[in-house]
Amino acid sequence: MISLTEIFKTYQIAEDKINVLNNINLTVERGDFFAITGPSGSGKTTLMNIIGCLDKPSSGTFMLDNINIMNCNEQELARVRNLSIGFVFQNFHLLPRMSVIENIHIPMVYAGVPKKERDSKAKIALEKVGLLEKANFLPSEISGGQKQRVAIARAIVNEPEIILADEPTGALDTETSMTIMNHFLHLNNEGTTIIVVTHEKDIASFANNQIVVRDGSIVNTEAPHRKDRLS
């Protein structure tokens, strides 16, 4: 489903060229729960942003669902982000002046979903993460774990095939992290492809497939020891 071939990402800083990603080759199958691990600064986020069509590689081939992303224009990329991908970020990225439910509306607004349908879909998504009663709260009025659950609801509301989560538990305590990961596991069981970036072993252990990135290269591909999956 996701296929990266000979991906390079280079940043030009003053005179120097720095290779942030070096010849990345990667395949993610439909329904995978995929973990990208590695030390800080190794290029995980850069890779994630490329997979999420937020950024373009300097060279290489990127196929998503048989679409050659390298040939897409900005508008087509926006459409892919809108409908095929759901993002969950480390620091939640909820819009602070909008209520929880209004935040969940955003992807549907850009997808052109009519207001009534948006309302019911947003409620269903909120219910899935168990936060229906917080619908009209502002992000500042709920806890970090709850914010991340709202972000998950927002990520799944357009029913994307892939969810990309960049250090989704990085700002949360262990117990809350487990709740969040269980939500991902649940979504994965329903058929959604999940890609999680993390540097924590505990978190990576939720995945059934894992790569380790170091200095912009994949150093090792392994299937981690999996925790018992939710039935």
Binding site: G52, E74, A78, N82
Partner: peptide, 16 residues
């Protein structure tokens, strides 16, 4: 700027 980034990540086009 952050709001714009979030909106773009969630599918907003340049035009929008």
């Amino acid at each position: 700027t952050r709001e714009i980034g979030v909106r773009k990540a969630l599918g907003a086009t340049k035009q929008q």
